[in-house]
Design a protein around this nucleic acid. Sequence first.
DNA 1: GATGAATGAGCCTTCATTCAT
DNA 2: TATGAATGAAGGCTCATTCAT
Lengths: 191, 191, 191, 191
Amino acid sequence: MEKVKVQNKREAILKATLKMVNNHGFHAAPMSMISKQAGVSPGTIYLYFENKEDLINTLYRELKAKFAEMIFSGFDSDMTVLDGFKVIWGNVLAYKCNEPEEALFIEQCDNTPMISDENKQKGYQAIQPLYDLWERGQREGVVKPFSRIMLFSFSLLPILYLVKESLRNETSLSTVDIENAFKASWDAISL
Amino acid sequence: MEKVKVQNKREAILKATLKMVNNHGFHAAPMSMISKQAGVSPGTIYLYFENKEDLINTLYRELKAKFAEMIFSGFDSDMTVLDGFKVIWGNVLAYKCNEPEEALFIEQCDNTPMISDENKQKGYQAIQPLYDLWERGQREGVVKPFSRIMLFSFSLLPILYLVKESLRNETSLSTVDIENAFKASWDAISL
Amino acid sequence: MEKVKVQNKREAILKATLKMVNNHGFHAAPMSMISKQAGVSPGTIYLYFENKEDLINTLYRELKAKFAEMIFSGFDSDMTVLDGFKVIWGNVLAYKCNEPEEALFIEQCDNTPMISDENKQKGYQAIQPLYDLWERGQREGVVKPFSRIMLFSFSLLPILYLVKESLRNETSLSTVDIENAFKASWDAISL
Amino acid sequence: MEKVKVQNKREAILKATLKMVNNHGFHAAPMSMISKQAGVSPGTIYLYFENKEDLINTLYRELKAKFAEMIFSGFDSDMTVLDGFKVIWGNVLAYKCNEPEEALFIEQCDNTPMISDENKQKGYQAIQPLYDLWERGQREGVVKPFSRIMLFSFSLLPILYLVKESLRNETSLSTVDIENAFKASWDAISL
DNA sequence: GATGAATGAGCCTTCATTCAT
DNA sequence: TATGAATGAAGGCTCATTCAT
């Protein structure tokens, strides 16, 4: 029970950081604001994190790890390449829709010098199973012989962007939109 | 000539802002640093811009305008849809390659609450001719009946991302890569 | 045995304080650092001392008391004034050489407003037997009719300073140096 | 005139630092307190000094330089050793009496890790003419063959301490005391 | 007695902005 | 116009102290 409380505090701080940085931007989210949002004293943050940079980096790392785990939910390397891709593609969509705040935070961080390169690198490695799937697809002759990054930018980046924009405009993607988007994604990278 | 000098000063400040914000990040680029880089006194910045936010927003707006202008260079609304798209797509690629600093700045701003939504909106309106082209393509039955944003995310976003990543890794895109990328872009949105 | 343990804890805290304050300076020796060095929880310090000021003052007081006790070791009020002075002078030298850390701490405190004047006063009173010796010397006509403080500053202060400097430079005082120093001390105050 | 104002500000800060550090101790003299005492904004201090450490070190350096200059006032290397020493000894006494605050500050700093060793070293070099005088005295056979530091600790340290104590007790040294003190100083180091 | 997580006042420092020149 | 010294609010962080266990 004691341990639970501690976990709660750490989690509360991370959650508050996510919210405050998303709403105000990194440099307009003071530690005092984060601590207040977390229901905690400013000094307490420094019991769990070395400094502000560490706080942000830790949050980024944990969110990326969670993302990497979620997108492979229900995925099995025995699936056909198309089926596997469909599962992962759907998971990416679902994550972005269900956890838009987390997704936004990750994106903000990716375009900022406040996340260490080492940390960013780790994020990419976490989706290795997807790279493996694509490579199998290339060996089987169903996926275009593109680099990982090209495959990513044509088959996953668009849907990530689409969801982000639909959330920003407070519109929603229709089932047809989603089907179309998946088809376009697959068309772009499949032979 | 006085006027020229004045223009020079304003330009110098904007240029310095671009450089400093790109290199150090927004919250680590103080006005004093920008003024020094511009060869100007801190107070002078306030003769041309209301405050730091205005400075950043102005720079963002002008870069977006320049971007919008450049991507339609050589474009003519009489062209076939495919030809027109090819010209614009190439211009986007060229801009991103030739002005990576400007492109990076724009992208940093797009994911940040420091640019007013109004300003962001204006950016989108500036590429109206591209929307017109797509609409014509849809009427002619050569472009998929997707929303603007879907067409954008499948046909232009990928190449923007690809160039950014290639610059980050200090690798370069081969001619074949580019041809493949264009083909994939067109495949994704054409019928 | 409980009592012993307790004494150990109190002693450990005082010892840690001495070490940390000497090595890092007063304002760079946090209670947490002292407690860790003492192998004790921060809260525990407050069971034995009211606050940091009290901790420092107590340590100062006890070290001064120890110093006062040591410098009269082997001294007997029946000795001639010269012999008595020789014993005490030698003890002062020995203390400074054998317990340089304690001596350094005392000196740091003497030049600081963090020790209460009352406490500093007590330190002077502890060397009463030396004052008595000097007074007897004056009555016997072998010691100059100087005030206590003048006698102290000419006959003991120099050797204290000399040892401190030799420790700082990591050089050592030769036997000849010491003999010379004693002679100069005695010359300065004797008739 | 502009320059004068600037000098005034810098001087005001240094003067305020001297006073506040003397009265409250280094760690209890916040920059805000110093700035208020100087009639200046906290930020202004950082226009003249890099940080608190630099402020303290600069003050120490300048006071030491002033001290070194003052103690040789009226001194001429053609004087006899005794006359020269008398002049310097008197100057030391005068400085300590007339500028007790400065002298106290220097002393506080000498026993603290907050002054860089380099800076302390410079202080010692500034009294070279005194060392030269002693060496001449040794060649002429009127000064004991002691090391510099021994000569200093027997002939100058006592009077420094005496004045300090007399100021602390708010008593004053009589003319007789001073004559006695000089005689004792000279006796201690002369042959 | 003993712990150590938690507190929050207060410190040093930065930096957007102003204003006298 | 242009300057840049000066400002002072605000931020990140520390650390003496407390209190529930």
